[in-house]
């Protein structure tokens, strides 16, 4: 038993973190900086990470990139294309410019031309229509249009693993969001002064942030196992591991993001503070492939 990241995985994490730090939105205003988004999108394209699975990468590597991108609020598509690629990987064909369709909408649709849905075992390709407003300010949702084109059928095992990977990608996103929101709140707590002291020096504030870090550490552990399980355990066990991770990481992320808003006080409740951008992304990632507590004991579906 040894569950450390390999040195290659640590390098991947560092590279994804650097890209997110360099080109992700550093403020709410930068969310509407189209030049930045174009540069970010080009840089992500250049890494080839959207086709990680087709290139033989494990669930762990996909989760590493998803986590770092969410930490930096990366607003270029990643999870959608990766999951679309996982569908076409089994069917042959070109996944470039694909994303996924879930619950009747194309998700993570920025730059996509088609959206692939898994319906039972069948993979269906949809066209993309108008943008749909949603909670998330960093990833686009769109309507799907036209008659779906059947691309083929996945074996039950492959469909099960795809579900596990989808839960892992969104769980990794939640862990990244938690880390980003928590770092934002800690930085602020060190500089914002009230009663003559940094607010982070007061136990009432410090303890909220300490709890947040413990939740993040627990999230990292449960995610690591689920990401590993995608390829290393049987599909039913992989899905169960992923459901546990999703439940834990989603609760943790909401708490940590709410804490980030609270620590920012009045400023945290304004549009210009990034805290709500993290919370919104957390809510969207929770709702995408949702898991309820009562699902833990149900079989593959």
């Amino acid at each position: 038993m040894d569950v450390r990241l390999t040195s290659e995985q640590r390098q991947l994490r560092d590279a994804a973190a650097k890209l997110a730090d360099d080109l992700g939105p550093g403020s709410v205003q930068e969310l509407s900086d189209d030049d930045r988004v174009a540069r970010l999108d080009k840089a992500v394209d250049g890494t080839g990470w959207r086709s990680l699975r087709a290139d033989g990468a494990s669930g762990v590597e996909v989760a590493i990139v998803a986590e770092e991108f969410a930490r930096g609020l990366v607003d270029a598509a990643f999870g959608g294309p990766v999951l679309a690629g996982e569908l076409t990987r089994h069917l042959g064909g070109d996944a470039a410019a694909d994303t996924i369709a879930v619950a009747g909408h194309a998700r993570d649709a920025r730059g996509a031309r088609r959206a692939l849905a898994l319906d039972g075992g069948r993979v269906l390709a949809h066209g993309l229509g108008a943008a749909v407003a949603g909670a998330d300010l960093t990833r686009h949702t769109a309507e799907v249009t036209g008659a779906p084109e059947p691309l083929g059928t996945l074996q039950a095992d492959a469909a099960g693993r795809w579900s596990a990977l989808a839960l892992v990608v969104t769980s990794a996103d939640l862990v990244g969001v938690s880390r980003g929101a928590h770092a934002l709140a800690c930085d602020y707590a060190k500089v914002r002064e009230q009663y003559g002291n940094a607010i982070g020096s007061y136990q009432a504030v410090a303890h909220l942030l300490a709890e947040g870090l413990a939740l993040i550490e627990g999230s990292v552990s449960v995610l690591r196992h689920a990401a590993w399980a995608v390829d290393e355990l049987g599909p039913a066990e992989a899905v169960r591991a992923a459901r546990i991770a999703k439940l834990y990481c989603a609760r943790a992320a909401r708490t940590v993001c709410e804490t980030a808003i609270q620590v920012h006080g009045g400023i945290g409740n304004t549009w210009e503070c990034l805290a709500h951008v993290y919370l919104r992304r957390a809510l969207a990632s929770t709702d995408l492939f949702p898991v309820r507590l009562e699902d833990i004991h149900s079989g593959l579906s």
């Binding site: 707590a189 060190k190 982070g200 136990q203 410090a206 303890h207 300490a210 709890e211 870090l213």
Partner: peptide, 14 residues
């Protein structure tokens, strides 16, 4: 434990 986390890991000066 939270005091230790806040001061020694997060550097919040609590």
């Amino acid at each position: 434990q939270k005091n230790i986390i806040a001061s020694r890991i997060l550097g919040l000066g609590a």
